[in-house]
Computed example of a mutant assay.
Amino acid sequence: MPGIKEVAKQANVSIATVSRVLSKPESVAEETIKRVLEVIEDLNYQPNAAARQLRMSETTTILVVVPDITNTFFSDVLRGIEFVALENGYQVLLGDAGNNPEQEKGYLNILRQKKAAGMILLTAGIEANLVEEIAAQYPVVLACEYLEGVNVPTVSIDNVSSARKATEYLINLGHKRIGYISGPMNSVLGRDRLKGFYQAMAQYNVKVEPDLVQEGDFSYKSGFNMMLKLLAYSHTPTAVFAANDEMAFGAVNAIEEKGLTVPQDISVIGFDNIKFSSIFKPALTTISQPTFDIGTKAMELLIGLMTKQEMKKTQFILENKLVLRDSCYKCSR
Rank of each mutant, 00 (worst) to 15 (best):
M1P: 02
I4A: 02
K5C: 00
E6W: 10
K9I: 03
N12H: 15
S14R: 08
I15M: 12
V18E: 01
A29P: 01
E30P: 01
L37I: 01
L37N: 14
E38N: 09
L43M: 12
N48D: 13
A51C: 12
Q53C: 04
R55S: 12
R55N: 11
T59H: 07
P67C: 11
F74W: 06
D76F: 01
Q91R: 13
V92K: 07
L108S: 05
N109E: 14
L111R: 08
A117Q: 06
M119T: 09
M119S: 05
N129Y: 10
V131A: 06
E132T: 11
Q137A: 15
P139K: 00
E145M: 14
I157C: 11
S162C: 07
R164L: 05
T167V: 11
Y169N: 07
I171D: 01
G174D: 03
K176E: 12
R177C: 10
I178W: 00
G179H: 04
Y180A: 10
R193A: 05
F197N: 04
M201L: 13
A202M: 10
V206I: 13
D211T: 12
G216F: 04
G216E: 14
F224T: 09
L231K: 10
Y233R: 07
S234L: 08
P237W: 02
T238L: 01
T238S: 15
A239Y: 12
A239T: 13
V240S: 08
N244H: 10
N244E: 11
F249D: 09
A254E: 02
E256R: 15
V262H: 03
V262F: 00
Q264T: 06
Q264R: 09
N273R: 05
N273T: 05
K275G: 13
S278T: 11
I279P: 02
L284I: 03
Q289W: 02
T291D: 08
T296D: 12
E310D: 05
K313S: 13
F316T: 02
N320E: 14
K321G: 13
K321N: 15
V323P: 06
R325V: 06
D326R: 11
C328Y: 01
Y329V: 00
K330W: 11
